[in-house]
């Protein structure tokens, strides 16, 4: 959906994000109260609270998360980080790949509460503060590796995670490293070339 700019320069997305965040703050007192009541009711201790802090792209974000909510949902619909895509929602395509403590994971198949104590990195968190692209992103730009690019954020995150532990892979090793990601445009050869270029740029520093 395109960002519609509202009077006052607030884009539609930013506007909605603001509303969601305000909603979370307004209701937080209710959850705290309920936790107390549950405690008194004799339900075993350890049930999670909904208002939690997530470390996303280096920032602590307070967010209201349901117990059954997946990380992909929280990232996209609560935190506005729509670079993370949802393809299958069943751990079968890789479009939702993000890094948890530097390890590629399917965010559609992680409960947000499972990620509470971890560093979450999404495609939005790869570029440097001054806008300089991550080498793997730069490799994608230089080689024009993708067609529709719906699968691109997932592939880039999977590659960035893989390259952290395998900085100098062969093409085959790289293919195996990103084998948990599908491309519906079947553009694998060019994708690999782009990711390999990214690996090369990373090694050059």
């Amino acid at each position: 959906m395109t960002d519609v700019v509202r009077p006052g320069g607030v884009s539609r997305r930013t506007f909605i994000k603001g509303v969601v965040a305000a909603g979370a703050v307004a209701t937080s007192a209710g959850y705290l109260l309920r936790t107390t009541l549950i405690g008194q009711g004799g339900v075993p201790a350890g049930a999670v609270e909904r208002l939690i802090t997530l470390n996303v792209n280096g920032r602590d974000r307070r967010v209201d998360v349901m117990p059954q909510e997946t990380l992909a949902m929280t990232l996209r619909y609560k935190l506005g980080l729509t670079g993370t895509k949802i393809g299958c929602d069943r751990a079968e395509c890789g479009a939702c790949t993000v890094l948890l403590d530097d390890v590629p994971r399917y965010s559609c198949s992680v409960l947000t509460h499972m990620a509470r104590k971890k560093r979450i990195t999404t495609i939005e968190g790869l570029a440097a503060a001054d806008g300089t692209l991550h080498p793997v992103q730069q490799g994608v730009v230089e080689e024009q590796g993708f067609q529709c690019a719906f699968c691109m954020p997932g592939f880039v995150m999977a590659a960035v995670g893989f390259l952290k532990t395998h900085p100098n892979p062969t093409r085959d090793e790289l293919a195996h490293g990103v084998s948990g990601n599908l491309c519906r445009c079947q553009d694998y050869d060019k994708i690999l070339t782009a990711l390999a270029r990214g690996a090369e740029l990373m090694r050059r520093g």
């Binding site: 339900v43 075993p44 350890g46 049930a47 117990p67 059954q68 949902m73 619909y77 509460h113």
Partner: peptide, 29 residues
């Protein structure tokens, strides 16, 4: 904005930090 689909029906989530706590929870539930 896309609708926020409820991916799974509601459940209570417990995140114990020791085997003993997990066993107590499993026994109770």
């Amino acid at each position: 904005m896309a609708a926020i689909h409820d991916v799974m029906p509601m459940f209570t989530l417990y995140q114990p930090e020791s085997v003993d706590d997990a066993l107590r929870l499993l026994d109770r539930l």
